Simulated assay, not measured.
Amino acid sequence: MSTGAKTLEGKTKVSQNALKHGNYTAAALQADRENRQLMREHRRVFKELIAATQEYLDLVSKHEELEKSQNIFE
C-alpha cells in the first residue's frame, strides 16, 4: 500500500495530477479563460469610465471658469 510521495520532487510531481487527469481539467481551464476574459472586459469598461469622468470634470471646470469671467463683467 502506497503512503504517497516522500521526496520534494515526488510531491511536486503528484501535486500536478489533478491538472492532468479527468474532466476537472477542461472545466477548470474553461473557467480560467472566462475569468480572464471578464477581467479584460472590466478593465476596458473601467478605463472608459475614467475617461468619461475626466471629460465631464474638464467640462465642469470650463463652465466654472466661464461663470467666474461673466461675474467679473457684471
Rank of each mutant, 00 (worst) to 15 (best):
Q37S: 05
E64L: 10
G4E: 01
S2M: 12
Q37D: 13
Q30L: 02
I50C: 03
A52F: 04
N23D: 09
S15T: 05
L66V: 04
Q54N: 10
E9F: 10
Q30C: 04
L38H: 08
A27M: 14
Y56H: 06
Q16R: 14
T12F: 09
N17M: 15
L8E: 04
R33I: 05
E74F: 11
E41P: 03
K68H: 02
A5F: 06
S2K: 05
K13N: 06
R33W: 02
A18K: 10
N17I: 13
A28R: 07
E48M: 05
F73A: 15
Y56T: 09
L38I: 13
L19G: 03
E74W: 09
E67D: 06
S69C: 05
A52E: 07
F46K: 14
D32L: 13
Y24W: 09
D58Y: 12
L59N: 14
N17P: 04
K68S: 08
A18S: 04
A28H: 06
E64T: 02
A5K: 06
S69L: 08
V14D: 12
S2Q: 12
K20D: 02
S69V: 08
L57A: 07
G22V: 01
A5T: 08
A18N: 14
N71Y: 05
I72H: 14
A51T: 09
H42S: 12
V60Y: 07
N35M: 08
E67I: 12
E34N: 02
R44A: 02
A52L: 10
K47Q: 13
V60F: 04
E34I: 00
A51E: 06
V60P: 00
E65D: 09
K68A: 09
Q54K: 07
A26W: 02
R36M: 05
N17S: 12
K47A: 15
Q70E: 15
Y24R: 02
